[in-house]
Amino acid sequence: MISTPALQDLTMLSITNLHANVADKPILKGLSLSINAGEIHAIMGPNGAGKSTLGYTLAGRPGYDVTDGSVTFLGEDLLALAPHERAAAGLFLGFQYPVEIPGVSNVQFLRESLNAQRKLRGHDPLSGADFLKLARAQADAMGMDMDMLKRPVNVGFSGGEKKRNEMVQMGIIDPKLAILDETDSGLDIDALRVVGDGINRIMRKPDKAVLLITHYQRLLDYVQPDFVHVLAGGRIVRSGGPELALELEREGYKDLAA
């Protein structure tokens, strides 16, 4: 295994003046944001502010067209990479609505995905036995039954199970940067704690970073952010520390809408 250089205090993600259209409609209008290794950032904001668009645009979803600005990820031009190359570079997107893939087991899906990433990074594929060991450990850590990992991806999973499955996937893939799009939505209070613990366990490390996209303060009770940003009208309109989230919870977004 090649050792990675110390990433602490490195700029992991640098977004400068990002403009992005969806179906020719401008959604992101000059968004700038910088995230260092070891940091957890929360992005909050009203519906329609462009929060999910930010996640999709960074992950390279087709149909999310960057019209201006730049994004560097670990010093590389992120926007020049295809979606699977961004994944291999270490970017993980936790989906707000995890997708069902009938007939494909979680185990197969994740093993193929992980090995595709390893191949792009020039590493040997993980053997079936090694992969299962890893998968079992991550499932256990999230309190997920191994049987669920053998079931088709997200098929017949409850909303909470899907979100938990996203965290198991994140644990197995072990990314550098996790963008978690409303990972807290649809979770009851117990599940919220499990998911929050998972994020801390997997991602709160000096060489990793998290961008939490959320509506509500409640996830931030479990995952303490270093920075909180308010996204409105396609831009970051305010930034602060954890106290900003509490303020927003009290007073709402109405005064912030651009």
């Binding site: 893939i101 994740l110 193929e112 992980l114 792009l120």
Partner: peptide, 23 residues
């Protein structure tokens, strides 16, 4: 959605199609 989900996890487009079709 399925294609992008699989690609975000690391599969190239052709690999993603093959995976979904095999499923």
């Amino acid at each position: 959605d399925q294609l992008f989900y699989a690609m975000q996890r690391g599969l190239g487009q052709e690999e993603a199609v093959a995976l979904i079709v095999n499923g």
